[in-house]
Design a protein around this nucleic acid. Structure first.
Length: 663
RNA sequence: AGCGAGGUAGGGUAGUCAGGAUAUCCCGUCGGGCUCAUAACCCGAAGAUCGAUGGUUCAAAUCCAUCCCUCGCUACCA
C-alpha cells in the first residue's frame, strides 16, 4: 500500500474586525491538539491558517475607525497571530487573505472556472446609495417588507414575517450607513453554477470524514434545491474579479482559497510542493465553527471540484460556546476575550486549553462559567493530575534522591498501552474530550496505584519493594507528560524537565510513553500547577457580570419618535367577541375583536398566558392600522397591546365604548 | 413551519452510530481509610421509571414509530 498523502490541517479564518474570544478558541485549540498529537503519532502534518480580510463589514469598520481596510486588517491580523501564539496554538503559516498569494490563487481559480463554463453573468437590481456613491450589499440596506409592511433588512424581513427578500424587492430602501434614501440601479454580477454540482455533492458528502454534524447539516441542505451562487460584489476592497475593475469576488470565495494560498506561502518558504496537498488525493482537514458548515461542505468542495483541485478529506465542526448558559453575544456582554479577560490576568494558557478540550464532545455546546472553570481546573488538573506527579516525584527524590533502578512492572506497561490505544482511536475519531478523559483516567489510575501500594509504608520494611512501586509511578508520570503535551504543552514540558529530561517532550513520539525511565538523579520537584483561588474566580466572574449589566443598559436605549410619527398609529379600544386556539400553534390565539366601526380578526401570541375563555368579553387596546399579516395561514388585522414577556394585557380602567381612540 | 442538535441521580456530563449482565466521570451529600502529597489522595454508601408512549428482540438509554420540551440554523449574512 502507498503511503497516505500528508495531512493538511486548517482552521476557519478569523475575521479582522474584532478581537479574539472564546468562540474562536473553541475551534483553534482542538485543531492544535489534533495537530500536535498526529505529529507525535508519526504523521506528516502541515497546519495553516490566516486572517480573513475582505468583505463589507471590514470596509465599514475601517471607515468608522478612520483608517483603511488594509490597516485595520493588519492590526487585527497581528492581534490574532499573537493571541494564538500565547495560547500555544502554533501554525506553520498564518497568512492574510489580502496578501498577493490569495489574490493570485483566487483569480487563477475563477479564470479556470470561467474557462470550464461554470460562471455566467446576469444583471440584477441592487440598492445604490447616492451619497456614499456605492452599491449596498443587502445587509446594509434597510426598508419596508413588501409582504408585511414592517421594517426589514435588505435580504430578509427580520422583524416581521421572516420572508427572504430577493434583491430589488424591498420597498423604500435606505442606506444603513448614512441614512440616505437609496435607489435601485442595474448592475451586472457573476454567478457560479452551484446547481450543477448537486450530483457531485451528495456522494461526496456521504464519504466525507470529520464530524457528523457537518455532514448531516450539509446533506440536509443539498436535498433542497441548490441555487446558483452570486460570487461578486460591488466593492473596492477585495480580490478583483478577472477583467472587471469595478467588481470584487465575494469574500466567501477568496476566504477558503486562502487555505491554498497559505499552503503555497509555507511551501515556498520551506522548499516544499503545495500541489502535494491540494491536487488529487489529499487529506485536507478543515476545523471550523458550526456556523460555517454550509460554506465548507457545499460551496467550497464545489469550487474546488469545478476548478479541478482535490476536494477536502474531512470537515471537523465545533459546537457553539455559551457563557453562563447564555448564547455567546458580544453585544449582550456574554463574551470572554482571550487577552483582556484571560491571558492578561496572568492565567495560564494550559488551563483554558484543558477546559475547552475536556468540557464536552467537540460537536456539542460548551458552556463557560468562571465557577465551573475554577472547579474543574482545581479538581481535575491540579488535584488528580498535578498531585499525582508531584507526590510521586517528591517521594522518589526524598527517599531515593531520584528515580530508582529496576524494571517496570508489565501490568503498568499494559495499563499505559491501554491508554495509548484508547487515546489514539479517540483522536482519530475527533473525540478530543474522550482522549483527555482517557489521559486523566491514567492519572487517576496512578493515584489509586500509589495509594493501594503505599510505598511510604513499604519503605519501612522492604526498601526494594518501595523502590519498585516508585519506579512504576514515575513511569506513569512519564507517560502522562508525553500524553498531556497536545493538551497542555507548557505543563508537559515542565513535567518532563522534572523527570530529569533536558530535551523537548514534543520531540518524542507518543510511543515513548512505554519506554522505561532510566535510573536518574532528579532535583526536588515543585508543584506543577497553581490552584485557582476562590477570590480570583469571584473577581473574574464579577467582571463578566458587570459587562452584562452594562450591555443591558445599552440595549435599552430606544430611538426617539416625533409626534407626527406617533400620530400615524391608530390605537383604539376593542371588545373581544370570541377567542380560539390556532391549531398546531402553541402561542397563538385567533380573536374576533369589535373595534366600534367593525369587527376585526386578530392573531395574538398569548396562548400560554390566557385561556380563550378568559379573553372573551375583555376590553383590550388595539393598534388598528397595522399592516395585515398572515400568521400560520390566518390573516391578522391589528395588534393587541400587552406588556412584557408574560403579555400582561392593557385594559381601560374606566368603561369605554369599543372603538374609543387612544391618545 | 422546515432542517439540525439535545432531553441520562441535586447540578454538570459520558455511553446511543456497531443493543446485552452492577449506566460513566466530575462536583455536591453521608460514612470510612491514609497521612508520601497543593486540606490532597484512596475506599465505600445514598441518589436516575436514561423526556413520554407504543413497537422490534431472549435482551433497549442504545434500533423503529409517534408525541412532548429545549436550543440552534434557514444561504448573495464573513
Amino acid at each position: 500500500m502507498m503511503n497516505p498523502p500528508p495531512l493538511l490541517v486548517t482552521c476557519g479564518l478569523p475575521y479582522t474586525n474584532g478581537p479574539c474570544h472564546l468562540g474562536h478558541l473553541r475551534t483553534y485549540v482542538p485543531a492544535d491538539m489534533y495537530v500536535r498529537y498526529m505529529r507525535r503519532a508519526g504523521e506528516e502534518v502541515v497546519f495553516v491558517c490566516g486572517s480573513d480580510n475582505h468583505g463589507t463589514p471590514i470596509v465599514v469598520s475601517a471607515e468608522e475607525a478612520g483608517t483603511s481596510p488594509r490597516a485595520l486588517s493588519e492590526k487585527y491580523h497581528k492581534h490574532f497571530d499573537e493571541s494564538f501564539k500565547r495560547m500555544n496554538v502554533i501554525f506553520d503559516r498564518f497568512g492574510m487573505t489580502d496578501d498577493p498569494a490569495t489574490h493570485h490563487r483566487t483569480q487563477a481559480i475563477i479564470s479556470e472556472l470561467q474557462k470550464k463554463g461554470y460562471i455566467y453573468n446576469q444583471v440584477v437590481h441592487q440598492a445604490y446609495c447616492t451619497k456614499c456613491k456605492r452599491f449596498l450589499p443587502d445587509r446594509y440596506v434597510e426598508g419596508i417588507c413588501p409582504h408585511c409592511g414592517r421594517p426589514a433588512r435588505g435580504d430578509e424581513c427580520d422583524q416581521g414575517c421572516g420572508k427572504h427578500l430577493e434583491p430589488g424587492e424591498i420597498k423604500d430602501p435606505v442606506c444603513k450607513v448614512c441614512g440616505t434614501k437609496a435607489e435601485f440601479r442595474d448592475q451586472e454580477h457573476y454567478f457560479f453554477r452551484l446547481s450543477e454540482f448537486k450530483d457531485f455533492l451528495l456522494p461526496y458528502l456521504d464519504q466525507l470524514r470529520g464530524t457528523n454534524n457537518a455532514k448531516n447539516y450539509a446533506i440536509g441542505w443539498i436535498k433542497d434545491e441548490l441555487h446558483d451562487w452570486c460570487i461578486t460584489r460591488t466593492l473596492e476592497w477585495g480580490v478583483k474579479f478577472p477583467g472587471r475593475d469595478d467588481l470584487v469576488v465575494y469574500v466567501w470565495v477568496d476566504a477558503p482559497i486562502g487555505y491554498i494560498a497559505f499552503t503555497e506561502e509555507w511551501a515556498k518558504a520551506n522548499g516544499k510542493d503545495w500541489k502535494r496537498y491540494w491536487c488529487g488525493e489529499n487529506r485536507v482537514t478543515h476545523f471550523i465553527g458550526g456556523d460555517i458548515i454550509y460554506h465548507h461542505c457545499i460551496f467550497w468542495p464545489a469550487l474546488l471540484k469545478g476548478a479541478g483541485y482535490g476536494v477536502p478529506h474531512a470537515v471537523v465542526a465545533s459546537g457553539m460556546v455559551k457563557v453562563d448558559d447564555h448564547k455567546f453575544s458580544k453585544s449582550r456582554g456574554y463574551v470572554v476575550w482571550t487577552n483582556d479577560d484571560y491571558l492578561d490576568k496572568g492565567l495560564p494558557a494550559d488551563y483554558l486549553r484543558y477546559y475547552l478540550l475536556a468540557y464536552t464532545s467537540h460537536t456539542k455546546e460548551l458552556n463557560f462559567s468562571w465557577k465551573v472553570f475554577g472547579e474543574r481546573i482545581n479538581n481535575e488538573v491540579v488535584n488528580i493530575f498535578g498531585n499525582f506527579v508531584y507526590r510521586t516525584l517528591y517521594f522518589a527524590q526524598k527517599e531515593f534522591a531520584g528515580i530508582p533502578p529496576g524494571t517496570i512492572d508489565p501490568a503498568i506497561i499494559a495499563e499505559i498501552e491501554k491508554t495509548l490505544a484508547t487515546v489514539d482511536q479517540l483522536m482519530r475519531d475527533y473525540e478530543f474530550k474522550g482522549a483527555v478523559d482517557a489521559i486523566m483516567a491514567l492519572a487517576a489510575f496512578g493515584n489509586t496505584y500509589i495509594q493501594t501500594n503505599a510505598p511510604w509504608k513499604l519503605i519501612k520494611t522492604d526498601r526494594a519493594a518501595a523502590a519498585q512501586v516508585v519506579k512504576n509511578c514515575v513511569q506513569i508520570a512519564k507517560a502522562l507528560a508525553i500524553l498531556i503535551e497536545p493538551v497542555m504543552p507548557d505543563t508537559a514540558q515542565r513535567c518532563w524537565r522534572q523527570l530529569g529530561y533536558f530535551d523537548q517532550v514534543a520531540a518524542h513520539p507518543i510511543s515513548d510513553a512505554t519506554c522505561p525511565v532510566p535510573e536518574a538523579c532528579i532535583e526536588p520537584p515543585t508543584t506543577l500547577f497553581v490552584k485557582m483561588e476562590d477570590t480570583q474566580i469571584t473577581e473574574l466572574d464579577a467582571l463578566l457580570q458587570r459587562r452584562v449589566a452594562e450591555a443591558n443598559k445599552k440595549t435599552e436605549k430606544i430611538p426617539v419618535v416625533t409626534f407626527e410619527e406617533f400620530q400615524k398609529l391608530d390605537i383604539r379600544t376593542g371588545k373581544v367577541l370570541s377567542a380560539e386556539l390556532v391549531p398546531k400553534s402553541n402561542k397563538l390565539l385567533k380573536l374576533m375583536v369589535n373595534i366600534g366601526t367593525e369587527t376585526r380578526q386578530i392573531v395574538a401570541g398569548m396562548q400560554q398566558f390566557y385561556q380563550p375563555g378568559e379573553m372573551v368579553g375583555k376590553d383590550v387596546v388595539v393598534v388598528t392600522n397595522l399592516a395585515p399579516a398572515k400568521i400560520f395561514g390566518i390573516e391578522s388585522n391589528g395588534m393587541i397591546l400587552a406588556a412584557g414577556d408574560a403579555a400582561s394585557l392593557l385594559v381601560p380602567v374606566k368603561p369605554v365604548e369599543p372603538g374609543t381612540k387612544i391618545r
